[in-house]
Structure formats: structure tokens, C-alpha cells
Design a protein around this nucleic acid. Structure first.
Length: 881
DNA sequence: GAGGTCCGGGG
DNA sequence: GTGTACGGACCTC
């Protein structure tokens, strides 16, 4: 029998663990595989004691202990060490054993989840396929077919088994003016959406009170009856994937609590184990045995590729699917329920369930997680959470193959040590060169970057805890940071091996992707190459992550030091061999200012430079990324440019921005609009005079009161009781005012308030006013507030970088030509070194030169702790003996 | 620029 | 369940 692994757990039978693997066969049947005979174990590195004495003492405790040879993970050693392997019986007793054995030495692998220990040792990975030989068993512990496995063998199959997806959404009836609480407030509706359909229905709404008979609606006499049906639908449809928008932090915890209150069972997973939500700090973690709980909200919010202003279902569904929620305030819902007018509430609820399902299925939200599970070996449910676990599991597997043992997660004392160590010596990050601030318009600015710089460095220099030369001698590489790593001929590092495998597989997958025609397979291949990239790129982060099992500061420092050296060298190579200047660089990219105006020519030169540098960079590859026809840089990590990328034969342009936000929640629409327009004029027309004139016209309209109130409205939410706010905040003050005017409006928690600042002598925060009230009373807005607090701060920085002072911008004293604009006008402040034209400014103190006076008038160099001052030494190969 | 605090989604 | 765990935006110094 061939099965794809969906979930795994264990139970104790006669005091011995039995592993259960929940799998799907190729036609979608669920099968649970039972495997007996596997026992939990851990290792102990004995310190200051005779190892045989320790074995004897552990055996006295009734545990199996044996001496075995293992490599310790940190520091290169020619030969393995003697460690004790301790085998237990009940996995849940291991933590206790671990603690009691700490007096003998350092425990290793004593906190590996039992299921992952089993999976790792049997080469079984989440979402991968296995071949099982065994006999059927009768059991009432799992609610699907069960077999007792004699043999389990991993298989290499590409396709995925068909899965059943179901989304759930509940509506509750708050009995007070606050978010519903499961202890008190009933569930009034449960809606579902199914893929594939459930008894020919794509969706279904349950209502806890009688309603007229209609398609797709089932009504009940009470909440309890409705929830009983909920449980039956779970059982009958038997989903593999349970979806819900914010299901992790709302619907599922609510349902489980409510079932408890109603005295109903909570075993709607695939086994006898109850569904539960483990609370950790602020958020919950779901557990539903044999199934996977998927929260599109959490996935979308964490996706680095998409950014939305808000992440509520309405916004997200509109942006991603082009479908919105049915508009309804929660108060309206309560009112409609009281009035027994339920048609719209039912459709509202149904839509929510449909949208959540559509997000996951139509947008392929799980594709990448399937692949991440296959690569890391994690179960699908766990692959949904962070990078840390993925790397830990991957490393555990790789370590085991090479007879290396894995450290435990850091405990309290170890963490304290790490924190103080980090505070003392610090972790130096990437190199960000001081940019040549200003508008660059004479020629194209070419951007080149190193593909996967950190993974490439790990590979190129064999950087790994297991190759770090701490003592003794062997042929090695010295990093700019000063750490030594043995050459791969002596010992290939694990990190380099992982990175190599990830990168090699990725290029293979990308090749397949290009040739593949089947859209379904294409989708999987694309998800796979993205997952491989994610894994490769985040491995560096894991080494520097303070809670990592393999936290070695020298490793993280070594990687970044090589990175800094690479960038420094690249800048040098380019400037020595080409007539261009590197005007900015961040981590793995260089920005080159040229005098070339033709896009194709710029691309050609960019590629020529990339090749030239790549040839001199060993295993590293610099590649042409894009061209900016005009480029405006304000500061490190803050720039905008008129970017051109070639799509086939056509150049596609857009305004690209980094660190210059035009959209921010606490900015009004006017700021966003003005900034976008200003950047457009500056970059596309290169007319700073026109841009500044535009700003003045905006201010003029504002002063005359012609700007629509909607453009001036700032929205902020009230999240707690008004009385519990300490400071004075505009939207809170406004809420107080409204309550005073209309005493019926007093519950504000959860409301989002739009306000406009009006004229007056009071404190600013007290001058926030409701836009409707302003219209009604004809109040005057505080235009100077909008100029000073909303418009000017972001605009000032842009114009300042273009050589225009604030007063010039506001007064428009002199119409300027572009040439004039590029010359910073002489300012009278004595701190500033004054220059004209394109010469640079030199700081007397540190000799650093830059092109424009900075906003503060102080040298950016002397004030920031930068890395590149003393770190220029070059990694060289040292031969010993 | 560093360090601390708040808040998200859901009804 | 052999685990204990966010992260981004914003504000202040």
C-alpha cells in the first residue's frame, strides 16, 4: 500500500509507545498505519566522570544505557567521542530523565518530539510517500482504516494524493457590547464550504434557530442541536484540511470551548484525541489529530511577497480574489438576529466560509508548504509555522546520517549566556555603504546583485559548526572574521551540503519548470523551487538565531564578514576596471552610476560588468538585475527609482520604492497622493521645480479649505476601554467627545474612528473631530497641522535629497532649472561644509566624503557604528604541514 | 539608530 | 505532548 503522509502521533499501549501515521492513498482514502517497537532515546556526553560508572548508575535507574561513538556538533574533530545512549520507554517521561541526568554531563537530542525521532530514524518525511506492508487491525482509537505495519519504506513520488478541504466560519451573538466570549455567548451560525463538494453542495450554513426552508441552509431548535450536527458533518465529510480565516485564534478555540460548555464531545479529529487549542502568550496553536488546520490569515500575513494595508478578510479577499465580504457591521448582525431577519446574515456567513476556502484553493496557498514539508521532513501542520523548526528537522536528519548528535534547545541559563555574549561581542550584520544621496539623472543607474549570496558563501568556504577548527591543526580557510574552517577535502560541512543540495535541486526544478506544459505540475514545480530557495536563504539566519540549537556566533559572523568582503571587493573591481562609480550597496547588491542613457546599452554593460566580477569571485555569481533610468536615494535603505526590466523584447517600467513609504496607516490620503505625484514628477520628468510647485499648489488648496475632508481623514482603531488609555490620543479624545454629545454611543472597543484635525487653541489631540460633524457645523480644518505634520516630514526628505531646502520648497523663491537643483544651495549654517557642483563634502574628523549636506548637518560616518572600518582582511587559504 | 510598547485577525 | 514560540509599526530618547 502506498500512502502520502498527512499526520503522525503516538499512543501508549501496555505502557509502550505505538506510532500512528495518518496517510492518504492515491485515490484519497485515509489509512492509519500503526507501528510498534520503536522506543524513545537520548544521548549524554559525560563530563568529569568515568563513562562506565555513569552507565552503571543510569542502569540502576532502570534505563537502558550503552556507550557509543558520536561526533559532537560544534568544532572539527578527527575522531568521534564516547557518549552514552539512553533508551526510555514512555516518551513523556524523557524530560524528567533528561533533567536528572544533567548531573552526569550534557544531554543531546533529549527534546526531539517522539514522532520526529521515529520519522527521522525511518527516513519518513511529512507529505512524502511510503510503502507499507502490514495487516488490517480493528481499533476504536482511530476513525479510519487502520493497519498494523510490518514494514515501512519511503518512496519517491511526485504527485500529491487528492485531499478534502473544508472551511468553517462561525457567527456568535455577543451578550454585551464586546467581542463574543465562548463562556457566555452562543454560536448562532456555522457555515462550511467544501472542495470537493459534500453531497453535491459546495457550501452549507447551519442556523441555531428555525428559519424558512431554503437551499443550502439547515436550521435547528437550539445551539446544542446545531453543534451536534456540526460534529456529524465533520465526521461525515471527514476533511483532511480544515480552513478558516483567523480560525487559529478565533473560530477553533471558540468552538472547542463552546462544545465544552454545551457538554458535547470534542473528538472531531481522526482519533480518540480531543481537538484542542494550546494557548501561547497571545495566540493559539491548533491540534486536530489526523487533519491539518490551515489559517489563510496567518499564511498571507507572513508572506513576504504581498503586503496589504490591512489583513482583514474583506481587504484580503478583495485584493486577492476580487470578491468582497457582504457588508455588515457586527452590531447590525446582532440587530438582524434580534429582529429575526436572517437572510442577509446567512449569506454573510456563507460568503466568509467561501472566501476562506477560495483563498487557499484558488491561490494555491498550501503549495509551498507541501514542498517545505517534503524538504524539511516536517508534518504539514508544523511546516506552516516558522523557519526554525524546518531547519532543526532538516539538520537532525542530516546529522543522523553522519553520526553527529544534535544539541538540545537552549534553556534559561544557556539563553542568558547567549544574550550577554551577544551584548558583549555583537553580531555584525551586512555591509550597507553610505549612499551618494541625491537625484541621479545623467545616466542609468544599473543594479547588480549576487545570487543567493549567503548560501553561496557557506558553500564556497565550507562554513559549518562541524568544520570549525577550534583546536589542533588541519588545512583550513581563515575568514575575514578570523575563524578557521577545515577544507571540504578534509570534512565536508553539513551546512554546505544542505545548501548545495537545495541550490542544485532548485536549478534542476527550474529547468523542469521551463519545459513542463501541464499547469498543475507547473504549479507544484514552482512552489518547489520557491520552497528550496526559502530554505537555502534562511539557513544563515538559523545559525545566528539566538534560540538555535546550533548557535555559534563565529559562524554567523563569518558569513557576514565574507559578505562584507565580497561587496567591498566588488566595488573595487568595478571602479578600477570600468569608468563608473558604485553609488550605493546593500548586503548583496551594488548600484552603479553610469553615463549611459540607452536602456539596451545599459543592460549590455550591466551584464558585462557582472561577468567580469563573477569571473573574479570564485563560486559567487553576480548578476544583472535591473536598470533605473533615474534614481533618487535619500539615505541607506531609502530610495526610489524609475525602474526598467525587460520582459521578452519589451521594457517594462515602474516607479520602484524601498523604504520610502507612500502608504501608511497613520497618514491621510493627501500625503499618499502628494508623495506619489511628487516622486512621479521628479523621476519621470526630472523637474524638481515642477514638483515643488505642485507641493505649493497642494498647500494652497489646503489653506483655502478646498481639500476634500476624505483626503484629510486619519483612521485609527480603539482597542480597549476608553478609561484604560493612559496618554492623550486624538481618536480616543474624539470618542470621548462623541459620547458626550450622544450618550447612547458609549462602547467603543473594536471601533475604527476617522478623524480630522481642526483649528483651535487646545492641545492637538483634543482637536480631532468627526468629519461629518465638521461638515455639519462648518468647522475649519487646521491646515498648518496638515502641512507640518502630515505633508512636510516625508516630502522634506525627498526634496532635501534633491538639494532643495524646506524654505525654498515652501516659498518657491526662485524657479530653478534642473542643473540648479542638483547643486545644493549654499546654506548659512556654520556646521555645514559648503560646496557647489558635483564635488564631494569631506568630514574633517574622519575624512569621509559625501555628496550632500545631510539633514542634521552632521557627518553620518562619525555618528554611526559602521562595520567596514577595520574589517578588510582577506580570507586566505593556509596550508599547514 | 536603538530600544520599548502596542496590536493584529475574529464576532 | 521528549518542544514553548511572533513580528511589524510606531513612539521616544
Amino acid at each position: 500500500m502506498k500512502l502520502q503522509i498527512l499526520d503522525c502521533d503516538y499512543i501508549l499501549i501496555h505502557n509502550r509507545p505505538v506510532v500512528r501515521i495518518f496517510g492518504k492513498d492515491s485515490v484519497g482514502n485515509t489509512v492509519c498505519v500503526f507501528k510498534e517497537g520503536f522506543l524513545p532515546y537520548m544521548y549524554l556526553h559525560v563530563k568529569d566522570r568515568d563513562i562506565n560508572d555513569v552507565v552503571y548508575e543510569i542502569e540502576k535507574l532502570g534505563l537502558r544505557a550503552e556507550v557509543t561513538d558520536k561526533f559532537l556538533p560544534i568544532g572539527y574533530k578527527k575522531t568521534p567521542e564516547k557518549v552514552v545512549k539512553i533508551t526510555g520507554r514512555d516518551p513523556s517521561k524523557i524530560p524528567e530523565i533528561r533533567e536528572s541526568l544533567k548531573r552526569f554531563g550534557v544531554p543531546y537530542e533529549a527534546d526531539i518530539l517522539f514522532k520526529y525521532r521515529f520519522m527521522s530514524d525511518n527516513n519518513i518525511k511529512g507529505m512524502n510517500w511510503i510503502e507499507v506492508e502490514g495487516t488490517p487491525v480493528r481499533t476504536n482509537t482511530v476513525k479510519c482504516r487502520a493497519i498494523d505495519a510490518k514494514k515501512i519504506k519511503p518512496l519517491d513520488l511526485f504527485n500529491n494524493a487528492p485531499l478534502k478541504y473544508m472551511s468553517v466560519d462561525i457567527e456568535c451573538l455577543p451578550t454585551a457590547d464586546r467581542i463574543a466570549e465562548p463562556e457566555k455567548d452562543p454560536i448562532i451560525m456555522v457555515s462550511f464550504a467544501f472542495s470537493p463538494s459534500f453531497r453535491n453542495s459546495k457550501n452549507l450554513v447551519l442556523v441555531s434557530r428555525p428559519v424558512k426552508k431554503q437551499e443550502g441552509v439547515m436550521s435547528f431548535g437550539s445551539e446544542k442541536e446545531m453543534m451536534e450536527r456540526f460534529l456529524r458533518i465533520m465526521k461525515d465529510y471527514d476533511p483532511d484540511i480544515v480552513i478558516g480565516y483567523n480560525i487559529n485564534n478565533f473560530d477553533l478555540p471558540y468552538i472547542t470551548k463552546r462544545l465544552e460548555v454545551l457538554n458535547l464531545p470534542r473528538d472531531f479529529g481522526r482519533s480518540e484525541k480531543n481537538v484542542y487549542c494550546r494557548k501561547l502568550q497571545q495566540t493559539y496553536m491548533p491540534y486536530m489529530s489526523g487533519r491539518v488546520v490551515v489559517d489563510p490569515y496567518e499564511i498571507i500575513r507572513r508572506d513576504p511577497w504581498v503586503r496589504f494595508k490591512r489583513y482583514n478578510l474583506d481587504t484580503v479577499a478583495k485584493e486577492m480574489l476580487g470578491i468582497q465580504k457582504i457588508p455588515m457591521g457586527y452590531k447590525e448582525m446582532v440587530a438582524l438576529w434580534s429582529a429575526n431577519k436572517l437572510d442577509r446574515v446567512i449569506e454573510y456567513s456563507r460568503r466568509d466560509a467561501v472566501l476562506a476556502l477560495k483563498l487557499v484553493i484558488d491561490k494555491g496557498l498550501l503549495d509551498q508548504f507541501f514542498e517545505l514539508a517534503k524538504i524539511s521532513g516536517l508534518l504539514l501542520q508544523d511546516s506552516l509555522s516558522g523557519q526554525t523548526q524546518r531547519h532543526e528537522n532538516k539538520l537532525l536528519n542530516e546529522f543522523r546520517d553522519r553520526n553527529i548528535i544534535m544539541p538540545c534547545k537552549p534553556g534559561g541559563t544557556e539563553m542568558a549566556k547567549r544574550i550577554s555574549e551577544r551584548e558583549k561581542s555583537g553580531l555584525k550584520g551586512a555591509l550597507v555603504l553610505e549612499p551618494e544621496v541625491g537625484l541621479h539623472t545623467d545616466g542609468c543607474t544599473i543594479v547588480l546583485d549576487f545570487t543567493s549570496l549567503y548560501p553561496s558563501l557557506i558553500k564556497a568556504y565550507n562554513i559549518c559548526p562541524t568544520t570549525l577548527l577550534l583546536e589542533g591543526e588541519a588545512d583550513h580557510v581563515v575568514s575575514p572574521f578570523g575563524s578557521r574552517f577545515v577544507l571540504p577535502e578534509i570534512r565536508e560541512g553539513i551546512l554546505p551540503k544542505i545548501v548545495d543540495e537545495l541550490m542544485t535541486t532548485r536549478s534542476k526544478v527550474r529547468k523542469e519548470l521551463k519545459e513542463e506544459k501541464d499547469p498543475e505540475k507547473k504549479r507544484i514545480l514552482n512552489a518547489k523551487q520557491l520552497a528550496l530557495k526559502t530554505m537555502a536563504n534562511s539557513l544563515y539566519g538559523y545559525t545566528g538565531y539566538i534560540r538555535s540549537r546550533l548557535y555559534v556566533m563565529d559562524i554567523a559572523n563569518t558569513i557576514t564578514s565574507f559578505g562584507r568582503e565580497t561587496i567591498t571587493n566588488t566595488k573595487k573591481i568595478i571602479e578600477e576596471n570600468f569608468p563608473f562609480k558604485v553609488i550605493y550597496s546593500d548586503t548583496d547588491s551594488v548600484f552603479i552610476r553610469t553615463n549611459i542613457t540607452d536602456l539596451d546599452e545599459a543592460k549590455e554593460i550591466g551584464e558585462k560588468i557582472s561577468d567580469f566580477v563573477s569571473k573574479r569571485s570564485g563560486k559567487l555569481h553576480l548578476k544583472y538585475e535591473k536598470t533605473f533610468k533615474t534614481f533618487l536615494i535619500l539615505a541607506k535603505k531609502r530610495y526610489a527609482g524609475w525602474s526598467f526590466e525587460k520582459d521578452g523584447d519589451i521594457w517594462k517600467d515602474k516607479i520602484a520604492m524601498k523604504g520610502i513609504e507612500t502608504v501608511r496607516r497613520d497618514w491621510c490620503g493627501l500625503t499618499t497622493d502628494t508623495m506619489n505625484r511628487v516622486l512621479d514628477i521628479i523621476l519621470k520628468e526630472q523637474d524638481i521645480g515642477k514638483a515643488s510647485k505642485y507641493v505649493r499648489s497642494v498647500i494652497h488648496e489646503l489653506n483655502k479649505g478646498l481639500t476634500p475632508l476624505e483626503k484629510l481623514t486619519i483612521i485609527k482603531g480603539i482597542t480597549k476601554e476608553i478609561s484604560r488609555y493612559n496618554g492623550i490620543q486624538p481618536h480616543v479624545e474624539l470618542a470621548k467627545k462623541i459620547s458626550k454629545r450622544d450618550p447612547t454611543r458609549k462602547n467603543w472597543v473594536g471601533e475604527r474612528l476617522g478623524f480630522v484635525i481642526i483649528k483651535g487653541n487646545q492641545l492637538l489631540s483634543k482637536r480631532a473631530e468627526d468629519p461629518d460633524y465638521i461638515k455639519e457645523k462648518g468647522l475649519e480644518i487646521d491646515s498648518s497641522y496638515y502641512v507640518q505634520n502630515q505633508l512636510m516630514p516625508p516630502l522634506e526628505r525627498i526634496f532635501e535629497a534633491c538639494g532643495l531646502t524646506t524654505s525654498e520648497l515652501l516659498e518657491g523663491s526662485r524657479q530653478k532649472s534642473l542643473q540648479d537643483m542638483l547643486r545644493p544651495k549654499k546654506k548659512k549654517s556654520p556646521e555645514e561644509t559648503i560646496l557647489s557642483g558635483f564635488d564631494s563634502i569631506v568630514c574633517k574628523n574622519c575624512n569621509w566624503s559625501f555628496r550632500r549636506p545631510t539633514l542634521t548637518g552632521l557627518c553620518p560616518k562619525c555618528h554611526s557604528k559602521l562595520y567596514f572600518s577595520g574589517n578588510g582582511s582577506i580570507g586566505t587559504t593556509v596550508q599547514t604541514k
